[in-house]
């Protein structure tokens, strides 16, 4: 059974079909890139997979459970327990230090554990920046704090929305290296991007256009670059 399965998903806003009959399966440990121009439905699909929105029709099976039928309260719990989110704009709480930002995710999930949060920061190379506020960190460092926060509760899926969109090349490479490590550890990654260079390092690339899947390709070069 696939970890994630979208069956006949549509999302309709008035006359606009943001997603139109999407069928998609993501296996456990797979690294998938979702590409497409603005308005192609990438963000809508991310929101539905991330339990922040519901489809107008269709089924979204996560671990065999149709999350499209769950209540808002249950969706919050599923998001907390199974999904790690990485954002283009990092979205760190600006008055909390790096380690406290990681601990916030622990707090909502179970119990905050500073030692574990520090280890997560060390894993993304930020052990020495743990007590810094976001305003004292560079964009790349903030994104790495965001990744540490997404990983801290050992989610089943990491959803990254344009994770390198606000980074320079050096920081982009650091983030992609972290994704490679996560993939090697069999973490399921779904990365939304409009950057072909980010998409081509993934195992699989799905391209959306006008709310439909235009292509779904396995990257033959995967693992060689």
């Amino acid at each position: 059974m696939s970890l994630l399965e979208l069956r006949g998903i549509s999302k309709i806003y008035g006359d606009l079909k943001a997603l139109d009959n999407i069928n998609l399966s993501v296996e456990n440990g797979e690294w998938t890139a979702i590409m497409g121009p603005s308005g192609s439905g990438k963000s809508t699909m991310m929101n539905i997979i991330g339990c922040m929105d519901k489809p107008t029709m269709g089924e979204v099976l996560l671990d065999g459970v149709d999350i499209a039928k769950e209540s808002a309260k249950n969706l919050t719990a599923i998001r907390r327990d199974k999904i790690g989110l990485i954002f283009q704009q990092f979205h760190l709480v600006n008055y909390l230090t790096a380690v406290e930002n990681v601990m916030v995710a622990q707090y909502y999930h179970s119990l905050p554990d500073e030692k574990e949060a520090l280890e997560a920061l060390a894993r993304v190379g930020l052990a020495d920046r743990a007590k810094h506020l976001p305003s004292q960190l560079s964009g790349g460092e903030q994104q790495r704090v965001c990744i540490a926060r997404a990983l801290i509760n050992h989610p089943e899926i990491i959803l990254a929305d344009e994770p390198t969109g606000n980074l320079d090349e050096a920081n982009e490479n650091i983030v992609l290296d972290l994704f490679r490590q996560l993939h090697e550890e069999h973490t399921t990654l779904i990365v939304v991007t409009h950057d072909p260079e980010v998409a081509e390092v993934a195992q699989r690339t799905i391209t959306l256009e006008h709310g439909r899947i235009k292509s779904d390709e396995i990257n033959k070069m995967f693992g060689r670059n």
Binding site: K73, T76, A77, R79, D81, L85, Y108
Partner: peptide, 16 residues
């Protein structure tokens, strides 16, 4: 609002 949205995205309930 963004911070509240983030907290909810991280799994905070309305009560939290």
């Amino acid at each position: 609002r963004k911070e509240i949205g983030l907290r909810k995205a991280l799994g905070a309930s309305d009560a939290s």
